[in-house]
Write a protein that binds this DNA or RNA. Sequence first.
DNA 1: TATAATAAATGTAAATTTTACGCTAATTTT
DNA 2: AAAATTAGCGTAAAATTTACATTTATTATA
Lengths: 234, 234
Amino acid sequence: MTEPQQDLYQIKEKMYVATDCIIFGFDEGKLKLLVFNRRVEPLKGEWSLIGSFVRIDEDLDVACERVLKETTGLENVFMQQLKCYGKKDRDPGYRCISVAHYALIRIDEYDKELVEQHGARWYEIEELPSLILDHDQMVQDALHQLENNARYRPIGFELLPEKFTIPQLQTLYEAIYQRDLDSRNFRKKVTSLNVLEKLDEKDKSGSKRGAFLYKFDHDNYEKLVRSGFNFEIA
Amino acid sequence: MTEPQQDLYQIKEKMYVATDCIIFGFDEGKLKLLVFNRRVEPLKGEWSLIGSFVRIDEDLDVACERVLKETTGLENVFMQQLKCYGKKDRDPGYRCISVAHYALIRIDEYDKELVEQHGARWYEIEELPSLILDHDQMVQDALHQLENNARYRPIGFELLPEKFTIPQLQTLYEAIYQRDLDSRNFRKKVTSLNVLEKLDEKDKSGSKRGAFLYKFDHDNYEKLVRSGFNFEIA
DNA sequence: TATAATAAATGTAAATTTTACGCTAATTTT
DNA sequence: AAAATTAGCGTAAAATTTACATTTATTATA
């Protein structure tokens, strides 16, 4: 790794390029973020996003995928570039710009051991500690982008297990939009999109009656998108 | 300037950070782009976006503002980060990531001499020559982002002279969305937003009858945005 | 084994927004 | 004076969104 360590602090001749990952998960009806407790100076003990310097021979998005893999064990995850942060003084030590990406992962799939090894843990969005540098800003921006993207493409499914119930899906959208949705209208809307495949199974964890499980129909979604269908949800 | 010149080509140890500007204008009912004919090797004579390396002590957005000022003479222009382009091989010579921004300028205000000095000229979007590196991709992405942003915030006004007519505004939105809009519905919509101030002047360049001129009411716009008003247009 | 408790599932009417559409008005050119 | 041209306006139909209450399936418990 070519990362500047403590001794490089205050060296300004070089411009470093980093990437930071805003990792969203959804659990217990809450939107959560995976944050990282720094084990090394500078800023040891503080909370931050997970990041890395981009290697000289590495695509930007590949760098971010590497970080995600290293910290959660996950690959082939929904990930999207958020923004490049480049205030000259954003890092007090050296000049470093950071290309932030946000990722949506299924919270039941990540490698718990790896996460622990990296000093990372999940926080509910409302209970996030404050993060180093401009990472709070990154999180705010990512939340907005998530909200905007969720409205027009069914990315919510990336945060749920493969099989999910409609009430679960609704709770997720309520967490993303931070407002309550009408369950009749929501159900009407999402079923009318023709991208939910109803299974013959029920999930009984949420209620006595149990709710039918659904799968997201990727193929039909692709077809409909190509035909110009508008996927606005809620 | 610390830009790598010809002789630095093929040096890969360093990661360069650049910015490129996608400069939109609106003229003669058409959306146009300001592109730059390279006067130096490599790729001399090819068309490209206007860009620059980011200085070690310069904010990203400031770098982009500098480029815009240098090439058009304009300041305080609507400008927004588009995306950071960072494929490892996007520039065949050296490793360079580019943070692209797009700018909306009033085509009657720029410094024509400066533009000429820089070997730049306006092209209609539909008639763009192909550009170097990944600049075609940048333009495509910028067009999409412009379309998306125009729908929810009244950025169209940034492309028109201070005084404009409703038919001009409509033509602009038609160019952005690439489809015809109904003039009665369009007029109804934009006037109902309460951000247009009708003047007592007419513009007679477009018709015998002449159309009333309007001004964009920035103050009221800000007020309405703060009150949570939704500015969806067309 | 009856009943109380709980969340899932369903339909309809009213309100709002969007779309479609044709005529008159003001001015200039011929 | 007539013809040509774009500006400006209003209304009805269609589509979408919103608001709202009851029944159903199942488990827990009395």
